[in-house]
Design a protein around this nucleic acid. Sequence first.
DNA 1: ATCTTTGCAAATGCTTTGCACATTC
DNA 2: GAATGTGCAAAGCATTTGCAAAGAT
Lengths: 144, 144
Amino acid sequence: MNDGMISLKMALKKNGYKLTSQRKATLKTILENQGKHLSTEEIFVKVKESNPRIGLATVYRTLLLLEELGILIKHNFEDGRYRYELSHPDQDHDHHHLICLKCGEVSEVKEDLLDSLEDIIVKNYGFKVANHKVKFYGYCKRCN
Amino acid sequence: MNDGMISLKMALKKNGYKLTSQRKATLKTILENQGKHLSTEEIFVKVKESNPRIGLATVYRTLLLLEELGILIKHNFEDGRYRYELSHPDQDHDHHHLICLKCGEVSEVKEDLLDSLEDIIVKNYGFKVANHKVKFYGYCKRCN
DNA sequence: ATCTTTGCAAATGCTTTGCACATTC
DNA sequence: GAATGTGCAAAGCATTTGCAAAGAT
C-alpha cells in the first residue's frame, strides 16, 4: 500500500467512512493517471478494467467524497463535464492551468506568484483567501 | 439607444446576424443588472417582464451568440449553471472574482497584476496567453 | 423573396437519488 | 449486528436541437 492509499484509509477512518474495494480502485486509477484530468466517465471506464462490477453512480459518489476529503480537486474546463486531479496538500494552493484554445490541451504551471495579488485582496477588500483557481486560455507551444 | 445597444447592432451586422427584439431585450436586461452575474434562467425571467412571449431556448441561443461576439463573458461559479456578465473590451483581460465560501457572494477585483506571471508563462512554457480566469475562494468581509 | 430567428416540445447528457441487497467495521 | 456502501434503474436539471411558423433585411 503506497502513500496515497494510506492517506485514503486514514481520511476515511477519521470521518467514519468505510474503506471499500470501489474506493480503493477509484483512487488507484487516479494515482496511475496523474497529470491527466480525467472525467468521471473516463475514471469509470478505467476502474471497470480491474473492477468490472462497479457502477457509474458509485464512481460519482466516490469522487464527490474524495473531493470532500480534500484528496481530489474538481475542475471545470468548460467541456461539459467535471474533471478530477489529485490534490497536493503539501502545497498551500492548487496550481494554475494553461488551456489551449486550439487543441484543448491542459497543462500545469509550477510557479504560483500570486502572493502580492492576494495581499492586495486582503488589504483592499477584506477578503481572506483560502484557495484560488487560475486558468490561462491561449495557444500552446505546438499550436502557436 | 445607448452604447451597449449600438455595439450590439454593429457586432450583429458585421457578422450577418439580425437585430431582433429578443436580442435587444436580452442585452438590455444584462445592462440593467451590471455586476450581478445572472444565470440564463434568471435572465429569461427578467426578459419576460418586457417580452412575455420569449422562449427559454431563445435566451440560451442569444447568450451563446453574445458570448461569441465578445459582448458577454460566461462564468462557472460551481453552482450548477452558467452565469453571464458584460465584457469590458476596453480592458484587455477579464477581472478576477472573489467567491465567499460561506455566503456565496461573488465580487470583483479591480487590480489585475498578472503581468509577471504571464511573462513567465510565455518564457517557460511557450504558451501565448489570450485571456485568463482567476477565482479566489475564501471568506468575505462580512463572513470573516 | 430569402435567409435568419423564434417558440415549442422533445431530446440530450451529465449527475443525483431511491431502494433493496451487499459489505465493512 | 448495525450502519454504511453499492448497483441498478429511474429521476432531475441545465442545456441543446428539430422543425414549422414568424420576422428581419
